[in-house]
Write a protein that binds this DNA or RNA. Sequence first.
DNA 1: CAGATATACTTGTTTTAACAAACATTGAAG
DNA 2: CTTCAATGTTTGTTAAAACAAGTATATCTG
Lengths: 143, 143
Amino acid sequence: MDPKQPIERVAFITVLRTAEELRARFERLLKDYGLTEPQFNVLRIVRGADKDGIPSQDIGRRMITRVPDVTRLLERLEQKGLVTRVRSDIDRRVVLTRITTEGRKLLSQIDDPVDDCHRQQFANMSKTDQKELIRLLNALAEG
Amino acid sequence: MDPKQPIERVAFITVLRTAEELRARFERLLKDYGLTEPQFNVLRIVRGADKDGIPSQDIGRRMITRVPDVTRLLERLEQKGLVTRVRSDIDRRVVLTRITTEGRKLLSQIDDPVDDCHRQQFANMSKTDQKELIRLLNALAEG
DNA sequence: CAGATATACTTGTTTTAACAAACATTGAAG
DNA sequence: CTTCAATGTTTGTTAAAACAAGTATATCTG
């Protein structure tokens, strides 16, 4: 890394590059199961929601992805038979998304490989350092 | 953050989420100058290259972006008049990209705002912590 | 309860990314 | 010198992101 650059820029680039590496490897894993990273995240969010389902906006808030794109993302997951969408009776503007049995089955297959992947990615970093890393990054987000 | 998740997954998500936040803000800045983040990076790489120009592949290697996409990325920069491309006489497979005067001018306008942006992004993190963060992330990359 | 405003989602359009395959040129082997 | 593999770039195709605008329902105000 260029030593003449201001430390803030080095930090910036380092965070982005690291994230990209982590993501790339993770996506290679997910690809074997026919999912992209955003799709996987949404599917996990939907699984974690209660039985009535979860509004699209709540999904969007927990995601990096923007709301207008959540619609089509869910559309694709629905086409794959991993989720179902129904319009809420209480508030007809809201669309509630639920995970299907097939969706659950797929996720349960992926859960372990995903954990393995992350363990491997952080294998040469102690738990203490991991906590420190998380602390630093969270502090950054609040600025 | 869900406390039941393994720490590796929390760390993973935190890195990705932070990177996304940093990138989003950065891209908003670049947008005022009509550039995307990858375009800006390529332009800086090209500026840093020697006068003969730099092969597309070398650019691809320094980027996150894959090589097949570098072609079209350079195409767009060329259309904007920020770079020129010529096929090398020494090895006619190679295309050498050079920055134009206009490209230099644009970059010189952006340099300061970019530094300001990064300084602001890391304003509430001490230099020590920034170094610590970089250290941790670099250690991670080597695993 | 009529009209304005806000909310939740959808649609349309334009870029850009991802992946596979093709093309052209070079260098090496026989 | 001819064939073959390797290298560097391009092209084609499909999927996904970005942004703006639109539709439907709810809520609030007078």
